[in-house]
Simulated scan of single mutants.
Amino acid sequence: MTLRNHFHTMIHLVFLCFCITTFSSLAADTISGNATLSGDQTIVSSGGNFELGFFTPGNSSKHYIGIWYKKVSKKTVVWVANRETPVSDKNSAQLKILEGNLVLLNESQTKIWSTDTNSTASDVVAVLLDDGNLVLRDGSESNSSISQPLWESFDNPADTWFARRKDCL
């Protein structure tokens, strides 16, 4: 193997490692303890109905974390986390799991929004459900789909009314 071929092989391996690390840090609908969401990264509910990420309303220069309909051509935001405290730079801000909570850190890495649970769970995950509800769960539970959420966006103010499954029964 020539030096040039060895160099190209090393470059490809580094690129592959970067891609695997980047793409495995966020599951399609989940933010886990080792992942952060920033910039243009989003998560999408398992059925593709809703998307969560940073958005900028209208001509504003401020950015918010929100949930919007994924399948509607005009972005229709249905829930906003940091409506009182927007961020200026979505590339430096981070949404992540920290000390058992989902938190939003601004450009200075100061916490500006949090789920503020008193959970003692060590393996917390945030999951965007296909009904538009963002839930914080104990990821170590074997059947988390039926477990009681530690926190959920449906219990927090929004501009859009959602019918909860259990309310419709």
Results as ranks from 00 to 15, higher is better:
residue 79 W to F: 12
residue 79 W to N: 07
residue 79 W to S: 07
residue 79 W to A: 13
residue 80 V to C: 15
residue 80 V to T: 15
residue 81 A to R: 01
residue 82 N to S: 09
residue 82 N to C: 12
residue 82 N to Y: 12
residue 83 R to I: 14
residue 83 R to H: 14
residue 83 R to P: 01
residue 83 R to G: 09
residue 84 E to M: 14
residue 84 E to H: 12
residue 84 E to L: 15
residue 85 T to W: 13
residue 86 P to K: 04
residue 86 P to H: 08
residue 86 P to R: 03
residue 87 V to R: 03
residue 87 V to A: 11
residue 87 V to W: 09
residue 88 S to I: 10
residue 88 S to V: 13
residue 88 S to F: 14
residue 89 D to A: 09
residue 89 D to I: 08
residue 90 K to N: 11
residue 90 K to M: 13
residue 90 K to H: 14
residue 92 S to M: 13
residue 92 S to R: 04
residue 92 S to A: 14
residue 93 A to F: 12
residue 93 A to R: 06
residue 93 A to N: 10
residue 94 Q to A: 04
residue 94 Q to S: 03
residue 94 Q to T: 02
residue 95 L to N: 05
residue 95 L to P: 05
residue 96 K to L: 14
residue 96 K to M: 12
residue 97 I to A: 07
residue 97 I to E: 03
residue 97 I to M: 10
residue 98 L to R: 03
residue 98 L to V: 11
residue 100 G to D: 12
residue 100 G to R: 04
residue 100 G to N: 09
residue 101 N to E: 08
residue 101 N to A: 08
residue 101 N to Q: 05
residue 101 N to Y: 05
residue 102 L to R: 02
residue 102 L to C: 08
residue 102 L to E: 07
residue 103 V to N: 00
residue 103 V to T: 04
residue 103 V to I: 14
residue 103 V to A: 08
residue 104 L to P: 01
residue 104 L to C: 05
residue 105 L to Q: 01
residue 105 L to S: 01
residue 106 N to S: 01
residue 106 N to T: 00
residue 106 N to G: 00
residue 107 E to P: 00
residue 107 E to L: 05
residue 107 E to H: 03
residue 107 E to G: 03
residue 107 E to N: 02
residue 108 S to G: 01
residue 108 S to F: 07
residue 108 S to Q: 05
residue 108 S to H: 06
residue 109 Q to L: 09
residue 110 T to F: 06
residue 110 T to S: 12
residue 110 T to N: 09
residue 111 K to Y: 02
residue 112 I to R: 01
residue 112 I to A: 04
residue 113 W to S: 00
